[in-house]
Amino acid sequence: MNIIKRELKANLKSIIGWSIFLVLFIAMGMQKYEALQGTNAEEFLKIMDVLPDAIKAVFGMNVLDITSIIGYYSVLYLYLILIISIHAVFIGTNIINKEEVDKTAEFLFLKPMTRHSVVNYKLIASLINLVILNLVSLISSIIILIYLENNVELLNIFLLHIGMFITQVLFLSISAFISLSTYKNNKLTLLSTSILLSTFFLSMIIDAFPEINVLRFLTPFKYFDAKEIVVNQGLNIYYVVFLILVSYLLIHVGKLNYKKRDLNI
């Protein structure tokens, strides 16, 4: 418990900063939706019509009505999930890396506690951080969307955030796996962020070129595609189970690697 408390306290400023940024991002993003209403919507659609089909597909405009509030929110969600995944990557990378970079690992790992337990407590603290940010996004999205339009299908927002949470957990697991398994830790954040951005761009390329749709399994961003969640009004349960399993395996193997390796002190 003491490690969880310590981690939550150490991350307090960071989570407040991320939360403020997220609320502002949603508010400012959705503010543009207000401007789209009425005659502006027709003008906007005319402009959008000129765009190549590939670009429209990236934003889901081929399947969603972007002038509807949920259609518009789905476009915003694309960036929301990217931002929140970057946070998960930072948290996952720092889980152990920070102790080694700041040289506090020697202090912590001489306590009568296994490395396994230390990692578990740190993971619990990290998950609490993910839940907080997810809830901030969910609650602020609901409030802002209801403020803009009374008739909002809240189920969609919930489903999108469940998908978002599983994606967060997956990125936390990927970056924690790298952090736990790697002795040289000066470029871990760069490596984890590169994985995140490349999979994000891959998801966009897949949208633009449906013929390479088979690659969708390589990018976490395609498992909970906003367009599909909104259109189908549901999450693919197989994807949910698969990603939870992958996350568990990454953490499990990461912990085994961590037990075997020397601490970088």
Partner: peptide, 20 residues
């Protein structure tokens, strides 16, 4: 067996703690 560390105190040559 990490439990043995209950009985161990250690002063390292270089000292690094949580700055906050």
């Amino acid at each position: 067996d990490k439990s043995v560390l209950k009985n161990v105190g250690y002063v390292p040559s270089e000292v690094f703690y949580y700055d906050d």
